[in-house]
Measured scan of single mutants.
Amino acid sequence: KAKLLVLLYAFVATDADTICIGYHANNSTDTVDTILEKNVAVTHSVNLLEDSHNGKLCKLKGIAPLQLGKCNITGWLLGNPECDSLLPARSWSYIVETPNSENGACYPGDLIDYEELREQLSSVSSLERFEIFPKESSWPNHTFNGVTVSCSHRGKSSFYRNLLWLTKKGDSYPKLTNSYVNNKGKEVLVLWGVHHPSSSDEQQSLYSNGNAYVSVASSNYNRRFTPEIAARPKVRDQHGRMNYYWTLLEPGDTIIFEATGNLIAPWYAFALSRGFESGIITSNASMHECNTKCQTPQGAINSNLPFQNIHPVTIGECPKYVRSTKLRMVTGLRNIPSIQYRGLFGAIAGFIEGGWTGMIDGWYGYHHQNEQGSGYAADQKSTQNAINGITNKVNSVIEKMNTQFTAVGKEFNNLEKRMENLNKKVDDGFLDIWTYNAELLVLLENERTLDFHDLNVKNLYEKVKSQLKNNAKEIGNGCFEFYHKCDNECMESVRNGTYDYPKYSEESKLNR
């Protein structure tokens, strides 16, 4: 008799109507990190870190770059004969040098303040090359056809396309004075040089004057150069050297050249137009028929994500570079809930034993079982409120962090190594801060989002509990077992918050 009662009780308990509160689960393989956990499985997430590029040089917003090819900045601007293909260059979106560009200054020497000139050019998007001192009329008392084997072109001695090597005419090199007034309405880049012979005999042979000088002056520039005559090792078949100089001439300003020898005179100059998204990159990537809004030396990035880990040097509207390998923000729920887990921000989770793959029309909802059958029903209101809140948060985070910009490298010469090392340390410090901030932001927001979901499920549970009161009992896994019969209409009233407690209280009292 006792065995019969136990079996009867078990049958009745199993047959009781139930309603459970749960949440969506799926077959997603997404994982995120939080402050407290690593690799948390979630139903949905968004990636904030771009880690792919196309490996190509592309047009930037429809404008092609200027590819210097086998030449570098120095060779292009001075007019190395091997860089003749660059003479027609007028406009570009950015400038590309190759790491091993070999054609710079063909006659050995240095372009002074080269690093600063590169910085200036990094904001130039177009130029006009014009004859600042016409070759045939500007130097009537001097020979202007100086050439050298060091600047050979097609097997013949030649010289820079933008400079003139002035030497004596006959047996004399009379003092020369020439000036140019900038009437271009924009900055003009003027380049010139000073020749330093290897011996007094060479000085006399070329310029006749043993104590020659070169003077260059404008409103913002004033220097006097004296040739340094000295024996030097042979470089590119030359014992002599040429140093090259430049200045930016403001609109309306005048530049005056005065010399008694050794002047490498300007022939062509450049009127410059600035462009905020221009820059110089060093890259071996090849040019393709493609378009982008962000270019790196590795390749083009076409992404609206706020961060990238491809390269710190970028041109155009680019994500911020960070050292992170993963920045994924959760938008959905835990896919593998932890039992009795309390989140960092106070939300209680884990009283549900598992997510439901059968509930596909919402994030949170119900599963019921009664004599009429069983089924899932999503709670659309709480789901939609959660979707709206999380979507707004993700968009806000992306908008705040998605300050796209150009980031170019800084140039230092060989004598500025300590400054370069200090600059690298400062840049590394800023990069570490950006990386830390980005990672911390994602970790915190992921923790908040998961706790937010847990709290929403808990609130749904409490909503049902407050309606049923003692007409049902909690069975410990997020479910309630009714003390009365609850048909589909009754189940719907529980879900929509209109459950009639008094209607079922007498039946429940008897069954309790």
Rank of each mutant, 00 (worst) to 15 (best):
K3M: 08
L5Y: 07
V6P: 00
L7R: 10
L8Y: 14
L8I: 12
A10L: 15
A10H: 05
A10Q: 04
F11A: 09
D15Q: 09
D17A: 09
T18A: 00
C20M: 08
H24P: 04
A25F: 02
N26K: 13
N26A: 11
N27Y: 06
N27G: 08
D30S: 01
T31H: 07
V32A: 05
D33E: 13
I35W: 04
K38A: 05
A41F: 14
V42W: 11
V42C: 10
V42A: 14
T43V: 13
L49D: 15
S52G: 14
S52Q: 13
K61G: 12
A64W: 03
P65Q: 01
P65A: 15
P65E: 05
L66A: 01
Q67K: 07
L68R: 14
L68G: 13
C71M: 15
I73R: 01
T74A: 08
L78Q: 02
N80E: 05
C83P: 06
S85Y: 13
L86D: 12
W92G: 06
S93K: 01
T98M: 02
T98F: 03
T98Y: 03
N100T: 08
S101Y: 00
E102M: 13
N103D: 00
C106L: 02
P108K: 05
D110R: 09
Y114W: 03
R118Y: 15
L121R: 01
S122L: 06
V124N: 04
L127F: 14
E128R: 05
E128W: 03
E131S: 10
P134Y: 10
P140K: 04
H142Q: 11
N145C: 06
S150H: 11
S150K: 05
S152E: 13
R154N: 11
K156D: 07
S157M: 11
L164M: 05
L166S: 00
G170L: 14
G170K: 04
D171T: 12
D171A: 12
Y173C: 08
K175Y: 12
K175V: 12
Y180A: 03
L191K: 00
P197L: 02
P197E: 09
S198E: 14
S199M: 10
S200D: 13
D201I: 14
S205E: 15
N209K: 12
G210R: 03
G210H: 13
N211T: 03
V216C: 10
S218R: 03
N220S: 12
N220L: 15
N222Q: 06
E228F: 14
I229Q: 11
I229C: 12
A230F: 13
R232Y: 05
P233G: 07
P233A: 10
P233R: 13
Q238C: 03
Q238P: 00
T247R: 07
L249C: 02
E250Y: 11
E250L: 13
T254Y: 09
I255Y: 09
I256H: 09
I256P: 00
E258S: 15
T260C: 00
G261W: 12
L263C: 05
W267I: 09
Y268G: 00
Y268P: 00
F270S: 03
G275N: 15
S278P: 00
